[in-house]
Computed example of a mutant assay.
Amino acid sequence: MKKELRLSGSGGQGLILAGIILAEAAINYDLNAVQTQSYGPEARGGASKAEVIISKEEINYPKVRKPDLLLCLTQKSYNEYVKDLKEDGILIVDSSIKIDYNTITGKIYSIPIIETAVKKVGRSMVANIVALGAIGEVLGIIPFEQLKAAVINRVPEGTEDLNTLALEQGAVLIREYME
């Protein structure tokens, strides 16, 4: 079992933190994980991506070549990275993104990540954690409680309940999408 993931969007959306949390949860679940990141020169609004590889075996190369799962929170990140997605890969996008369904052969989850963060959790800044809940549900390799513990360990003190709600709402989004 080896999964390569790319979480993409714009700077300020917290995707690097989400990648760190995902890698930490995997390691705490006795899996191997490596996390890398890159972002544009702008602090906010520039391109941003976090890459995570999770494996039962040793990881020999830390970069994601062909993601098994691609998360896109902006149209720009979708346009740039969708071509890299594995043929049978999983695409999770915010529902505001226009998708070319003819070019994707894997599973597509177009879900209201940012809207859920705003309307159901009350803060747009937790869209990254909503996305993380969705990713955890789709992958199914790290138990929810393990992911929740990693979130609580990494988020600012006093925001644990808010972020737990965001994680739960992300998992609910995927379950509702699958119904």
Score class of each variant (00 low, 15 high):
residue 120 K to P: 07
residue 173 L to A: 06
residue 88 D to A: 08
residue 141 I to N: 15
residue 41 P to K: 15
residue 73 L to R: 04
residue 54 I to F: 04
residue 125 M to H: 00
residue 74 T to G: 03
residue 82 V to F: 06
residue 28 N to A: 10
residue 33 A to E: 06
residue 69 L to P: 14
residue 76 K to S: 12
residue 152 I to R: 08
residue 150 A to C: 15
residue 53 I to R: 05
residue 165 L to N: 10
residue 111 I to H: 01
residue 33 A to C: 07
residue 10 S to G: 14
residue 81 Y to H: 13
residue 17 L to W: 00
residue 2 K to Y: 05
residue 49 K to N: 10
residue 79 N to V: 02
residue 14 G to T: 00
residue 90 I to G: 12
residue 173 L to P: 04
residue 164 T to W: 13
residue 21 I to M: 13
residue 47 A to T: 12
residue 90 I to W: 11
residue 165 L to Y: 09
residue 120 K to F: 13
residue 66 K to M: 08
residue 90 I to C: 09
residue 80 E to I: 14
residue 149 A to F: 02
residue 5 L to V: 10
residue 6 R to N: 08
residue 133 G to C: 01
residue 15 L to K: 03
residue 73 L to E: 05
residue 128 N to P: 09
residue 136 G to T: 01
residue 95 S to V: 04
residue 128 N to K: 02
residue 12 G to T: 05
residue 138 V to T: 13
residue 69 L to Y: 14
residue 100 D to I: 11
residue 101 Y to I: 09
residue 122 G to L: 04
residue 105 T to D: 15
residue 81 Y to T: 04
residue 87 E to R: 12
residue 55 S to W: 09
residue 46 G to D: 15
residue 2 K to C: 06
residue 50 A to K: 06
residue 47 A to M: 07
residue 61 Y to N: 06
residue 119 K to S: 09
residue 71 L to N: 06
residue 25 A to M: 10
residue 91 L to I: 12
residue 122 G to D: 04
residue 112 P to V: 01
residue 130 V to A: 12
residue 86 K to W: 01
residue 29 Y to K: 15
residue 87 E to V: 06
residue 178 M to Y: 05
residue 102 N to G: 09
residue 160 E to I: 03
residue 74 T to N: 02
residue 21 I to S: 10
residue 68 D to C: 07
residue 57 E to W: 07
residue 137 E to T: 05
residue 30 D to G: 02
residue 15 L to W: 02
residue 158 G to H: 05
residue 69 L to K: 13
residue 15 L to D: 04
residue 45 G to K: 12
residue 35 Q to M: 07
residue 151 V to D: 09
residue 128 N to E: 08
residue 95 S to G: 02
residue 18 A to N: 02
residue 153 N to V: 00
residue 69 L to G: 14
residue 116 T to Y: 01
residue 175 R to S: 10
residue 117 A to H: 06
residue 70 L to R: 15
residue 12 G to S: 05
residue 40 G to A: 14
residue 20 I to L: 15
residue 62 P to S: 05
residue 25 A to R: 06
residue 40 G to C: 13
residue 93 V to L: 12
residue 5 L to P: 11
residue 160 E to L: 00
residue 79 N to F: 03
residue 137 E to N: 08
residue 32 N to V: 03
residue 124 S to R: 15
residue 75 Q to G: 11
residue 79 N to I: 00
residue 68 D to P: 03
residue 2 K to S: 08
residue 95 S to Q: 04
residue 150 A to H: 14
residue 81 Y to S: 09
residue 72 C to T: 10
residue 161 D to P: 00
residue 145 E to G: 00
residue 50 A to N: 06
residue 43 A to W: 03
residue 75 Q to H: 14
residue 58 E to T: 15
residue 84 D to E: 15
residue 43 A to K: 14
residue 135 I to F: 04
residue 110 S to C: 14
residue 164 T to I: 07
residue 163 N to Q: 03
residue 92 I to A: 05
residue 3 K to W: 15
residue 135 I to E: 01
residue 75 Q to N: 12
residue 88 D to Q: 08
residue 67 P to N: 09
residue 142 I to S: 09
residue 83 K to Q: 00
residue 152 I to G: 10
residue 138 V to F: 11
residue 11 G to L: 08
residue 106 G to S: 06
residue 129 I to H: 00
residue 156 P to W: 08
residue 42 E to D: 12
residue 55 S to N: 04
residue 150 A to T: 07
residue 105 T to I: 14
residue 9 G to F: 01
residue 114 I to Y: 06
residue 50 A to V: 11
residue 136 G to V: 02
residue 81 Y to K: 07
residue 30 D to C: 07
residue 164 T to V: 12
residue 51 E to C: 09
